[in-house]
């Protein structure tokens, strides 16, 4: 069975890849906070923000097309909510647009809000994608744990990441088998067959979890996973963080 590999570019080498994971998470979070909470109807501010995001992508040597593909695939969801914005904002400074028999009031503020929300979402998606593809998932989780995310949650998520591919494999096999055997049939039949598939998957997953737990117990598991975290924050990392923070503040003040 084939799976999409999310951290496909996580083992290449660049300035962004070499950043300490904790610093990298903080730096990207800072960027996202600045962009996602940019206020008002001032659209010019998105030009320097976009330049910052694009330069981060170029620095990381991850193909720009790869990141843009992610953005495009998420765009329908973003547009679904925002597409009405130009038409429902306050009437001041508005015009009427006719489209065949349909006449809609369009406001400039509404259009500005629409562009701003779409820009914010797209830039944030680009940043999250870049964070994900330039860090492998295991070190991302370890860094999050070091940043005081509850270790219980981190352990559960690492288990989940371990078994998600196993379970998806099982599900894909079951679906393939079902499709081989059932041609035609009513929609209700297919719905029922797929629901039973999920039922079977649940039972298998539950039994697997019990077996995993027994195996862990017999190896002396006492509720804690111990691992070595040996990456240290260097001056270079701190310089990057400070530099980024200064740039973002300057953009916010003068943008």
């Amino acid at each position: 069975m084939e799976h999409a590999f999310f951290d496909e570019y996580s083992h290449s080498d660049s300035v962004i890849h070499r950043l300490e994971p904790r610093v990298k998470i903080l730096a990207f979070l800072l960027c996202i906070l600045f962009i996602a909470f940019a206020t008002g109807y001032n659209l010019k501010i998105f030009v320097p923000y976009s330049i910052t995001v694009i330069s981060l992508i170029l620095l990381s040597k991850v193909p720009v097309a790869f990141i843009f593909k992610r953005v495009v695939s998420l765009l329908p969801f973003i547009l679904m909510v925002t597409i009405f914005l130009p038409f429902i904002q306050s009437v001041e400074g508005g015009e009427k647009v006719s489209w065949g028999a349909l006449t809609l009031p369009v406001s400039y503020n509404g259009i500005r809000l629409f562009v701003s929300v779409v820009m914010k979402s797209c830039l944030s998606v680009m940043l999250t994608t870049l964070l994900m593809v330039s860090t492998d998932f295991a070190s991302l989780l370890k860094a999050l744990e070091k940043l005081r995310v509850p270790s219980l949650l981190i352990m559960i998520i690492s288990f989940m990441y371990r078994y998600v591919f196993v379970l998806e494999d099982e599900l894909m096999k079951m679906r393939q088998a079902k499709e081989c055997r059932s041609v035609g049939g009513s929609q209700w039949f297919h719905l029922k067959a797929q629901a039973n598939m999920l039922g079977v998957l649940f039972l298998r997953a539950y039994e697997r979890a019990e077996k995993v737990y027994l195996a862990m117990c017999s190896r002396g598991f006492d509720g804690h996973a111990r691992s070595i975290y040996d990456s240290k924050i260097k001056t270079r990392d701190m310089l990057f963080l400070v530099f980024l923070a200064v740039i973002l503040t300057l953009i916010k003040l003068y943008g």
């Binding site: 559960i156 078994y163 998600v164 599900l171 737990y213």
Partner: peptide
């Protein structure tokens, strides 16, 4: 107790996989 870690982990994987399955 201790059992929650593997159980919750595998169950999260189950929910994740269940969400991937498309229904007509």
């Amino acid at each position: 107790k201790d059992k929650m870690i593997p159980l919750m982990g595998v169950m999260s994987a189950f929910v994740f996989a269940a969400q991937m399955l498309n229904f007509p």
